[in-house]
């Protein structure tokens, strides 16, 4: 019965072909280092899921941001767990993405024809860091407030445009409700959507070119 249903669907959707093209593709001999891209992808999905759950209670306004986080941590069942996963997952994601990049670098996998995979990879790293930066402000506690003060101040050191960049990031001259809501919007929509698109392109290129062989002694 189940196999009949599957056959019916497969005939129309091409599930088997999809499986072969996406997951059952030929791979060169690899090591655990080759799993780091998939680990990054897994972490991205996990951040997405736990992030959506946090949104159920988090409120991006200076009056309520701090209290809503206290509520998540101390009152909601498993709130500490969901926030903990999101918090540590964020740190781990930056780390794993970075190590993934180191692995691609040390195995020289960025060379022809994978230059664009690398370039998109750089954007992936920057976007991931951007998520970390914007997420850090959201709890609206002393530490996040001053971390963002410092970060936007540093952005102000850019020659000529610096002042303007700081204003754009803060939504004005001071850190305010406007800063919080633009960081929030960037954190939950702009950057995740960007990251999802970039990941799609990254994975398309990986499937298109296949994964690289590790360099041999002759290389």
């Amino acid at each position: 019965m189940a196999s009949k249903v599957f056959e019916w669907l497969d005939e129309r959707l091409g599930l088997n072909d999809m499986y072969k093209a996406l997951l059952d593709r030929p791979e060169p001999e690899g090591t655990w280092w080759n799993t780091l891209g998939s680990a990054s992808l897994f972490l991205f999905i996990m951040q997405g899921v736990t992030g959506i759950f946090l949104l159920m209670y988090y409120t991006p306004s200076p009056d309520h941001a701090y209290d809503s986080i206290q509520y998540i941590m101390n009152e909601v069942a498993f709130g500490w767990l969901i926030r903990g996963i999101h918090h540590w997952g964020a740190n781990l994601m930056v780390f794993i993405v970075f190590v993934h990049m180191l692995r691609v670098f040390t195995t020289a996998s960025y060379k022809y024809p994978r230059e664009l995979t690398w370039v998109i990879g750089v954007l992936l790293l920057l976007t991931t860091l951007g998520l970390g930066l914007t997420g850090y402000l959201l709890p609206w506690n002393q530490r996040s407030y001053f971390a963002t003060t410092v970060a936007t101040e540093i952005a102000g050191l850019v020659p000529f445009a610096g002042d303007f960049i700081t204003r754009v990031m803060r939504g004005g001259t001071d850190l305010s409700a406007l800063t919080l809501s633009r960081f929030f919007a960037t954190h939950v929509w702009v950057l995740p959507a960007t990251l999802a698109l970039l990941i799609t392109a990254h994975l398309y290129l990986i499937i298109r070119h296949g994964e690289s062989e590790y360099p041999s002694e002759e290389d």
Binding site: V49, F53, M56, E75, V76, A77, F78, G79, L81, I82
Partner: peptide, 15 residues
């Protein structure tokens, strides 16, 4: 391990 706590998390205020 994720799904069960998540359900509790969502239902909590209702309970």
């Amino acid at each position: 391990g994720i799904a069960l706590p998540a359900i509790g998390y969502v239902l909590d205020p209702a309970l």
